[in-house]
Design a binder for these strands. Structure first.
Lengths: 334, 334
DNA sequence: TACAGTCGTCAAACCGGTTTGATTCACCGG
DNA sequence: CCGGTGAATCAAACCGGTTTGACGACTGTA
C-alpha cells in the first residue's frame, strides 16, 4: 500500500504538507492541495490505521462487549449487534466484537492494548462485573441496560418500568380486573438482568395500584414445556379476561393454544405483550404491544459513547427511553 | 499505559531486550527475563496494538463481512457470528464486524487501512461481488458458502447437495413414493445464495433418480401466509406420505397445522427437514433432520483464513463438509 | 519604510513497538 | 595460545502517520 511518503513524493511536497492538507489543520495552497489529491487518487492512498492510532491515540474503533448468555432470545441479540455496528459506522467508528467468555478479560484485553476508543456493554446485569473493568480501563463506556451502581458510566435503556405500567394501565382502563401475567422463565431472573426485574416489579406494583388481580406465571424455559405451562395458567384462572405477556416464547405459542381452544382475541380474551416488530419477519404476532425499540436505545448508546470520547469530562448521563405502545386491537373493553 | 520503554527502564535494560524477551527471538538470560517479568507485572504492561501492527504489519484482527440481507433467519446468523468470534479468539485474533450496506466498500475500507489481516465472508452468493474486493485487496480471505467462481479463495460450506440427497434417500429407502418438498420462499432464491439452489436442485435430482414423485412448494415469505401455503400443499397432494422441509418457518408452523388436522407424525405423515439444534432452544422441533452444523463449518473457515495468513502461498482449498443427519423418529416405512 | 501578522511549506521529533548490526564476553577445539 | 562460536545485550533504524518550530514570502498598517 502507498504511504503518505509516497503521496508526498508524487506530489513533490513534504509528508507534513500532505498530512496538513488531509487534516486541514494548516492552510495549504489550492494548487498544492490539488496535486496532493491527484497523488492520492493515483496511488490509491489510504492512511494506515495502526500508524494513525499510534500517532493520535485514537483508533476509531468501539469495542462491543457481548456477554455469553445462551438463554437469551437470539434474533433480538443479533438486531442489537447490527444496530450498534451501523450506528458506529455513521459516526466514523468500526466495531470490534468481544465475545470472551469472561467479559472482564475481554474488556481488559482490548482497552489495555489500546485497540478501542470506548466500549459498549450489551445485556447489562444489575451487578455487572464488567463495569469495574471499564472503570479500571479509564476508557469511555456505555451500558445498554441499567445496573444498580452505574453512577460512573453513561447508560441507556428502555424504561421497562414505564412499559410495565402502561401495559397494566392499558388493561385496567378497559375494565379488566383479573389478568394473567406470563413473565419470563425463572432462569432469566437468575441471570440478574435489570430489565427483567424492572418490568416484572412494575407490572406487579401497578396492578396493585390499579386494583387489578394478577396471576403470575413463569413461562417454561424449555419450549417443550411451554404449551403446558400456558394451558395450565388458563385453566387455573378461568375468570381472567386478559393476558399480559412478556415471554416471547409464550407469545409464539399463544396463537396455537388459543386456536386449539377456540378462544378468540380480543372477544374472549384480551392480550397485550412486549415485543418488537422484528418478530413480524418471523412470526405473525397480532397483539397490541410495547415495543422495545432497539434502534432508538442502541443508537442513543452509541452516540453517547462517541460524545464521551470527544469530551471525556461531560457529566454522566443515565437515560430511560419512553416506550412506545402499538395498538393492534388485541384488547377490548369488558 | 506503560510502554515497552517504561518496562525497560524499570528492569534496567534496553527496549530491544524487553522485546526479545517477549518474543523469544534472541536468547535472554534467566535473570534478566525475571526482572523483565516483574517489571511487566508491576507496570501492568500490555503492548500497544497500533504500534505492534505498525512494526509487524500484523493486526491480529479478522474482518467479518456480514452482508445486509434482512430476509435471512436471524438466530442462525447470530450463531455464525458468535462462532466466528469464538474461534478467532482461540487462534489469537480479534474480530472486526463489517456490516456496511455495500460489502465491497467495507472490505476496501478495512483492508486498505490495514485494519485486518484477513476477511471472512458470510452468506456468500453465487456471483458475489465481494470476492473481487478481496482479491483486489490481496489479503487472505475465506468464503463461508460457495460461489460460482471461487477458484481464487478458500471456501468452506456444508455439502448441501449431499444434504438434499440424503434426505431424499432417507425417504425413498423407507418406501415413500410421493413427497411434498417445502422449499424456501422465492425471495430467498432471488438472493442468489448458493446453498439455496444447491439444496433445491439436489433434492429434485435425487428424487428423479430414486423415482420419487415430488410436489415442490415455495414457503411464504410473510409469516401470515405461511400456514395457508402449508395447508394448501397438504390439500393439493393428499396422497403424499412424507414432507421434506427446508424452510424453517414452515417447520415452526408445522406442528400446529398437523395438530389442527389431527395428523400424527410419523403414523400419518413422515417428516424430514434441515435445521440445527439451535432451534431446540426456541422451538421444540421433533423432526428427523440434517444439521447445518455451523460450529464445524465456521470453525473450519476461521482456521483456513488463519492458516493462509501464516502461509499465503498454500494452495487454495474448497471444502464441502459432509452433513450429519439426526434421526428423531419422524419418518416411517410405508 | 519598517514591523507585524498571516500564508505556505519543510525538517525534525514523536508515538511504541520490532528488527538488525555491532559489541562484549565466555567457552571450546585445535 | 589463538581463532571461532554462541550467548547476552545495546544502540539505532524503521514502520507510517501527526505535530511543532522555523523560515521565507507576502500583505497590511503605522
Amino acid at each position: 500500500m502507498a504511504t503518505i511518503g509516497d503521496v508526498a513524493k508524487y506530489a513533490g511536497v513534504s509528508r507534513s504538507t500532505v498530512s496538513h492538507a488531509l487534516s486541514g489543520k494548516r492552510p495549504i495552497s489550492l494548487e498544492t492541495r490539488q496535486r496532493i489529491s491527484e497523488a492520492i487518487v493515483a496511488l490509491q492512498y489510504t492512511a494506515n490505521a495502526g500508524a494513525k492510532a499510534l500517532a493520535t491515540s485514537k483508533t476509531s474503533t468501539l469495542g462491543l462487549i457481548v456477554p455469553y448468555t445462551p438463554a437469551e432470545f437470539a434474533p433480538a441479540r443479533m438486531q442489537y449487534v447490527m444496530i450498534v455496528s451501523e450506528t458506529a459506522r455513521e459516526l466514523g467508528f468500526d466495531v470490534l466484537m468481544v465475545t470472551d467468555f469472561d467479559g472482564r478479560a475481554g474488556i481488559k484485553r482490548v482497552t489495555d492494548s489500546s485497540r478501542v476508543d470506548g466500549v459498549i456493554l450489551l445485556n447489562v446485569t444489575r451487578h455487572d462485573e464488567r463495569i469495574g473493568s471499564v472503570l479500571a480501563a479509564a476508557k469511555p463506556g456505555v451500558l445498554i441496560g441499567l445496573a444498580d451502581d452505574n453512577a460512573a458510566l453513561d447508560s441507556v435503556d428502555l424504561d421497562f418500568a414505564a412499559a410495565g405500567r402502561s401495559m397494566v394501565r392499558h388493561l385496567a382502563e378497559r375494565g379488566h380486573r383479573r389478568v394473567i401475567f406470563v413473565t419470563l422463565p425463572t432462569e432469566m431472573f437468575l441471570q440478574d438482568l435489570g430489565y427483567v426485574w424492572r418490568l416484572h416489579e412494575s407490572v406487579i406494583d401497578e396492578a396493585q395500584t390499579a386494583g387489578l388481580a394478577l396471576t403470575v406465571v413463569h413461562d417454561a424455559a424449555d419450549p417443550k414445556d411451554r404449551m403446558r405451562v400456558l394451558a395450565g395458567a388458563l385453566d387455573a384462572t378461568p375468570d381472567a379476561t386478559a393476558l399480559l405477556v412478556h415471554s416471547v416464547g409464550a407469545l409464539i405459542d399463544l396463537p396455537v393454544l388459543l386456536s386449539q381452544r377456540r378462544i378468540s382475541v380480543p372477544r374472549d380474551l384480551s392480550v397485550v405483550g412486549l415485543f418488537g416488530d422484528e418478530f413480524g419477519a418471523m412470526f405473525a404476532l397480532p397483539y397490541t404491544a410495547v415495543e422495545p425499540s432497539p434502534e432508538v436505545v442502541v443508537s442513543r448508546a452509541v452516540h453517547l459513547v462517541a460524545e464521551r470520547i470527544e469530551d471525556p469530562s461531560r457529566p454522566v448521563v443515565q437515560e430511560l427511553l419512553a416506550p412506545l405502545m402499538v395498538d393492534r386491537g388485541s384488547t377490548r373493553e369488558v
